[in-house]
């Protein structure tokens, strides 16, 4: 499967709904074979529409094209595209058992019974749910349901795996555990996958590449590291991680272009000896998080800044502190 993984190419794919709303501006996107690309953005940014265009559940507006390797699949309906889909609502067939769910795609493909049985067992083993084979869907927990949904989607050996917010319906702990499992699964299968989420932590953990979207447009594409360290604009910086902003007027004594605000991440600030930092401020709030403390600081800027420190010193509300940010940790954002 890995040797000939399918590359997905979208060319000028836009989507205007019948009532005239524009869900997606013309978008170009190339996903390499075996790569995991995460479409990240707030709700209504067009990420799900983009995924549905790849799936074949939506048609792009005229002149949009979808390619799987060298095949133009634009006109191909979903049932002919050989894609695997995983939904937020799991979408398991309630009238079938776990094994029947996993077998469904194979049954539709008219595979022989022994072949189906072997493949279903292989999938259940891979997802470590062999003991659930004969259960009904309503007897499963959310995490188990999503495992079944994954097994069902990959059982047919799809060319592309499409995941639409698969973890959103789960609670935080389970979400994190399943995220790790999905990550190792996608890596071991080396299957081309497109993963939609609004959760930046999920995107960072899973994506070889992240595509940040906003209002029907792709804002930035890059590895999680690139996106986090070099956000292209304030939308990306704000959406992924937290940023602090200090107006240029207050930046005397710092070597930086005057026309820009100073922008930095909370963890890049360091608490230093009184008055020896770049800014001084008063602690408004102090949260002890165990491994670190989070401080909300008023340093005269229009918005309070947030800093995170791994120092062991006790810093409380009302304390005056001095802050230093290393010169190359300032983000360059217009």
């Amino acid at each position: 499967m890995s040797s000939n993984a399918t590359a997905v190419t979208l060319h000028k794919c836009a989507k205007t709904f019948e009532d005239g709303t524009r869900a997606l501006d013309p978008v170009d996107l190339a996903v390499e074979g075996g790569e995991t690309v995460v479409l990240l953005g707030p709700s209504g940014c067009g990420k799900t529409t983009l995924l549905r265009i790849v799936a074949g559940l939506e048609n792009p507006d005229k002149s949009g094209e979808v390619w799987f390797n060298n095949d133009d699949v634009t006109e191909l309906p979903i049932e002919k595209r050989n894609v695997g889909m995983v939904f937020q609502s799991y979408a398991l067939f309630p009238n079938m058992t776990v094994a029947e769910n996993v077998a469904y795609g194979l049954r539709v493909r008219k595979m022989s019974k022994p072949e189906i049985e072997a493949r279903v067992l292989e999938m259940l083993k891979m997802m470590r749910i062999t003991e659930l084979a004969n259960r009904n869907i309503d007897q499963l927990s959310g995490g188990q349901r999503q495992r079944v949904a994954l097994a069902r989607a990959i059982a047919v050996r799809p060319r592309v795996l499409l995941l639409d917010e698969p973890l959103t319906a789960l609670d935080a702990l389970l979400r994190e555990r399943l995220r790790v499992e999905i990550d190792s699964l996608l890596r071991s299968l080396a299957i081309t996958s497109i993963y939609v989420t609004h959760d930046q932590a999920e995107a960072m953990a899973l994506g070889d590449r992240i595509v940040v979207m906003s209002k029907g447009k792709i804002v930035q594409t890059g590895s999680p590291r690139e996106i986090y360290n070099n956000p292209k604009n304030s939308f990306v910086a704000d959406f992924i991680g937290t940023v602090n902003r200090i107006p240029s007027a207050m930046t005397d004594g710092i070597d930086t272009p005057k026309e820009h605000d100073l922008v930095f991440r909370p963890e890049d600030a360091e608490i230093v000896e009184k008055s020896s930092g770049q800014f001084n401020g008063k602690v408004v709030n102090s949260f002890f998080l165990g491994d670190r403390i989070r401080l909300i600081v008023d340093c005269g800027a229009p918005e309070y800044i947030t800093i995170e420190s791994f120092q062991r010193d006790v810093i409380e509300e009302g304390d005056e502190i001095s802050i230093r940010v290393h010169q190359d940790r300032f983000l360059e954002i217009n």
């Binding site: 799936a55 559940l57 309906p77 979903i78 049932e79 002919k80 595209r81 050989n82 894609v83 695997g84 889909m85 939904f87 979408a91 398991l92 067939f93 469904y104 795609g105 539709v108 493909r109 949904a149 069902r152 989607a153 047919v156 499409l162």
Partner: peptide
């Protein structure tokens, strides 16, 4: 949609 994606 799930059934369709599986080829139904």
């Amino acid at each position: 949609e799930a059934a369709q994606s599986l080829g139904a």
